[in-house]
Amino acid sequence: MAIELKDVSYVYGAGTPMEVRALDHVSLTIPDGQFIGLIGHTGSGKSTLIQHLNGLIKATEGDILYNGRSIYAEGFSMKELRSKVGLVFQYPEHQLFETDVFTDVCFGPKNLGLDKEEIQARAREALELVGMDASYDEASPFELSGGQKRRVAIAGVLAMKPEVLILDEPTAGLDPKGRDEILDQVALLHKERGNTVVLVSHSMEDVAKYVDRIIVMNHGRAVFDGTPKEVFRHYKELEQIGLAAPQVTYIVHRLKEQGFPIDGDITTVEEARRAILEGIRNRK
């Protein structure tokens, strides 16, 4: 049970002067239940990659397997794939269109052809999952704050009960409070439902705090792939491609260079705190 990319390439505008190779022979496996951070600059191919995962764009070369079956094989149901792999676009609140919150969240499951009771049960559950209680059900989506709108939009995808949830920069433009709320909800969802989550992000700090695995994209290739510790070990190479490790990783490396006994593989403030205290106490 997994999504498997086999040597996938994608070329925009093939055969024209505007030809761009957005994905360049990418091979990777996304097993069930993993929480993955997908990182890279604008134009690195992150968005192109995730749009392949639910068949919104078709690979120019290579193959994608969903639970062992090629999604490009004849007879493979794209509709079913899209109900299993839920994609939350950037600024998803721009896609809210119904007159009230509850109806908007019902739209997805309604399109799956479910009966009315099931639709409503799913909408209610999805809204609860993103922390929007019933008092908002009848509100117009346009009366809500930016963070609330975004949570409603995410609920719209959750109501489809996807096995894999992909979020394209879900915190872009939100303030720190809104960002923490969304990421905490996603982390909770991952924990409680066991969903596979792919989080596209620009923030190394956020990614280091939440995910099991980081995939770094650059020029259409997956250049690093591993646990946050493994990936941030390459902080110097990350800098060369215009990315950076969390600030705390730099602090720890600087301390280490100066002779402080500390493990360089530290990616969160909490780890650094414990390690520094230990270093100082042992000294005493």
Binding site: P176, K177, D180, E205, P246, Q247, V248, I251, V269, A272, R273, I276, L277, I280
Partner: peptide, 20 residues
Amino acid sequence: YRLDVPQVTELSWELKQDGL
């Protein structure tokens, strides 16, 4: 106020709470 501080500031503050 749920505002961010730089990680280096947060780390120093935490360590200060621990008595450094």
